[in-house]
Design a protein around this nucleic acid. Structure first.
Length: 508
RNA sequence: UCCUCGAUAGCUCAGCUGGUUAGAGCGAGCGGCUGUUAACCGCUAGGUCGUUGGUUCGAGCCCAACUCGGGGAGCCA
């Protein structure tokens, strides 16, 4: 018996006999023939079982297969351009390894709650398979980029003793009788490590106890936090841009099949390989408020145009729903036609509810853009108003120091501003990276710690970093799941991580 | 914590302004047809309408509270 072959490499075995091990992701059958769509984790392949090639017994076995049965089969690889991957396998023998009765996830649509309850099985679906493969490519690519640039990977602790930025967003645990909190950032430790190793990055889990129920929040997520000695904010932005582009490039190079599986239009990913626009907070505010155009496009005018377009689209979809519902009432309708019209109605209603949501949002965005108060941090709608004018991530730097973290350096030429930088992803995804140049002046830091009413004793070690050989340094934090969500253009972060932990969701 | 929408069969949904025995498709089971790609044809099984209380001659539908879930605000990656 030959060693088994992975589906992803079948195209190199055309004309040969191979052994495949996997699960039944779909099956169709006819008289004297059965089509088994096998998946093995590396890909999907149609396996054809006929009486002539496999014998009556194997055909009977194939006919009995249900969704997600595990099987081992042997067969001949044939080129077939109609199939995914360009091949199909003519089966010679087939053995069932494990049965699978009443597999809960069907080929039809399911609701979010049901799928989340079945997450351990949902991961087997083609769409989830593709997302997890892209996530893996992104993780690998991040490591590769930093390693090639001479960064050292070092992890920050997960238990932290002091509630550095307020306890409300921290998970409290018991650490040998004392309260300890799960880390919500390794950044301060990253600074210490950068003073030791020059350029470092952390890659670890982060915990936020926010009772957020939105499409971009998780209670547990993975964050990459690089920290670089002797980098100013502009070198920091070069680093962010270089890393994000390396990741996008790797995904485009290695995940074409996965991107196709999830229906991702890659135009924006491709344009993201070009230089990212960089702008100060001041300029970003002018753009949001419609006082400055981007390539001739005005933020507010274009929102109003979009509103009108969406309203027309809504009227159209409503007409289509009415039409299909009318057709459903026709007497003597065949079962198949009824099924078709019904699934169309469901599909259109989904589009309709999405449209209605956008129609509720756009006026709020316009309102929020018009009334934006200079000096405030950006809200979700402000980010959307800004980023929809670009076809790639945008970097906004030099923020009013009051709205940013205590450790950010002031712009020496205008101390109203702190040298923070936010990277906002396009297509409505908002902040994926937050970072900046760090404050090096001890007195300035002490003042800030008092201003934020933080416990000074907890920061003594951090202040030491400025007392002994302080240097300009910068860093940033990348939210892995937000990156995956944008690259895959997912509607919600919960699909970007194998087992999401979020408000109201702890199992499976 | 606040705003908003929702909870009807294993799944996805319908159920008009409260009115007799609550419907469909998918899935499941059985049978027929078919080199097929979630949409061929027929039959069968399957529901104390989220929980509790209230209004009413009568509640899936109205009211209140609660539980769970979707979306959003705040906060952020």
């Amino acid at each position: 018996m030959k060693t088994s072959t992975r589906i992803e490499s079948l195209s190199q075995h055309i004309g040969q006999e191979v052994e495949l091990k996997g699960w039944v992701s779909n099956k169709r059958e006819g008289k004297g023939i059965a089509f088994v769509i096998l998946r093995d984790g590396s890909g999907y392949c149609q396996c054809v079982v006929t009486e002539e090639s496999a014998g009556a017994e194997a055909l009977a076995e194939a006919t009995k297969l249900s969704l997600e049965c595990s099987v081992i089969l042997t067969g001949t690889v044939l080129a077939d351009e109609k199939q995914v991957g360009g091949v199909e396998v003519q089966v010679n023998s087939l053995t069932t390894v494990g049965g699978s009765e009443n597999y809960p996830i069907s080929k039809k649509e399911h609701g979010v709650e049901f799928l989340m309850d079945q997450r351990h099985l949902w991961l087997r679906s083609a769409r989830q398979w593709a997302i997890m493969r892209i996530r893996n490519t992104i993780i690998f690519s991040i490591h590769k980029y930093f390693q090639e640039q001479g960064f050292v990977q070092m992890d920050a602790p997960i238990f932290t003793g002091n509630a550095c930025e307020g306890t409300s967003t921290l998970f409290e645990t018991d650490f040998y009788g004392d309260p300890a909190y799960l880390s919500q950032s390794g950044q301060l430790y990253g600074e210490a490590m950068a003073m030791a190793l020059g350029k470092i990055y952390t890659f670890g889990p982060t915990f936020r106890a926010e009772k957020s129920k939105t499409r971009r929040h998780l209670s547990e997520f993975w964050m990459i936090e690089p920290e670089m000695a002797f980098y100013d904010i502009f070198q920091n932005m070069d680093c962010i841009e270089g890393m994000l582009q390396a990741v996008v490039k790797d995904v485009l190079a290695n995940c074409q099949e996965e991107l196709k599986t999830i229906g991702r239009n890659t135009a924006v990913l491709e344009s993201s390989l070009g230089a990212f626009p960089r702008m100060t907070y001041d300029q970003a505010v002018r753009i949001i408020k419609g006082e400055e155009n981007v390539n001739g496009v005005n933020s507010i005018a274009s929102l109003e145009e979009e509103l009108a377009a969406k309203q027309a689209e809504l009227a159209q979809i409503e007409a289509q729903i009415a039409e299909k519902e009318e057709q459903l009432k026709e007497p003597g309708l065949k079962k198949g036609q009824m099924n078709f019209y019904q699934s169309k109605v469901i599909e259109f209603k989904q589009i309709k509810s999405d449209l209605e949501e956008e129609l509720r949002n756009i006026p709020q965005w316009i309102e929020s853009a018009r009334t934006f108060e200079y000096g405030n941090d950006f809200g979700g709608s402000d980010e959307t108003v800004l980023t929809r004018l670009f076809d790639r991530p945008v970097m906004v730097y030099d923020w009013p120091h009051e709205v940013k973290a205590f450790y950010l350096k002031r712009n020496p030429e205008d101390t109203r501003f702190a040298r923070g930088v936010d990277v906002l992803a396009p297509e409505g995804y908002g902040e994926i990276v937050g970072g900046g140049e760090r404050e090096t002046d001890v007195d300035m830091l002490i003042g800030k710690i008092h201003e934020h009413e933080l416990p000074m004793e907890a920061f003594e070690w951090y202040l030491d970093l400025r007392r002994y050989g302080s240097v300009p340094h910068s860093g940033f934090g990348l939210g892995l799941e937000r990156m995956v969500t944008w690259v895959c253009k997912l509607k919600h972060v919960r699909e970007s991580i194998p087992f999401p932990r979020m408000y109201g969701r702890l199992t499976p």
